[in-house]
């Protein structure tokens, strides 16, 4: 099931952010220079691991993590995550929280696996997140590293997916909480 720009816009609307327009410009400029190829690591981040990651590095890392925490059934992850982050990396406290948490994930990846998170094999990305404790931690924006990674990275991505219509449909609800999907779907029977 493919995630679309409509899904990203819906997910952003659920959390009170915009950014799709600016992102569209950036996407057009980047067309053909990255995209799905990033999955193989051949368009890795220019960021070298020192200091706070720039927006591109955050997007690359978050997209890689999304491939781990999203189910196999979804496609279109790159564009979806990119569009969603376009509205979240807006200079807000939240956006900087994402940036800081991604820096910690990247630091762990480079220390423990000698590679940025986007270059890790799927099993290693999964192991990295679990070794960070993000699987068992409860999300907390002011908590431990595990709790902040859970909040700003793992749950950020899961919130984006499952508050979107396509993410909801994966579960069987085309109008999930957070998505303004209208006041008709509750009247309809199973499809």
């Amino acid at each position: 099931m493919e995630l679309t720009r409509r899904d990203a816009a819906a997910a952003l609307a659920a959390v009170g952010a915009t950014g799709g327009v600016a992102l569209g410009v950036r996407r057009a400029a980047d067309e053909g220079s990255g995209g799905e190829g990033a999955e193989d690591g051949d368009a890795g981040p220019a960021w070298d691991g020192d200091g706070p990651p720039d927006d591109e590095a955050v997007r690359t890392a978050m997209t890689a993590v999304a491939r781990t925490v999203y189910p196999e059934a979804v496609s279109g992850i790159d564009a979806f995550v990119e569009a969603f982050l376009g509205g979240r990396l807006d200079g807000s406290t939240h956006g900087e929280g994402i940036r800081a948490a991604v820096a910690e994930v990247e630091s762990a990846a480079r220390s423990w696996y000698d590679a940025p998170v986007a270059d890790l094999a799927p099993a290693d990305r999964d192991a990295l997140l679990r070794e960070l404790g993000a699987d068992v931690a409860e999300e907390n924006p002011d908590g431990t590293t595990a709790e902040r990674v859970r909040y700003y990275v793992v749950n950020e991505l899961l919130l984006a997916l499952y508050a979107s219509p396509t993410g909801g449909e994966l579960v069987g609800i085309e109008n999930p909480q957070g998505y303004a999907g209208g006041a008709e779907s509750y009247q309809r029977g199973p499809r």
Binding site: T68, D135, L158, L161, V171, P176, Q177
Partner: peptide, 16 residues
């Protein structure tokens, strides 16, 4: 579902 998705120790296909 979206609230449930933000709890638990699974992700990916197991979460779905």
């Amino acid at each position: 579902p979206v609230e449930t998705a933000l709890t638990g120790d699974d992700w990916g296909d197991a979460l779905l």
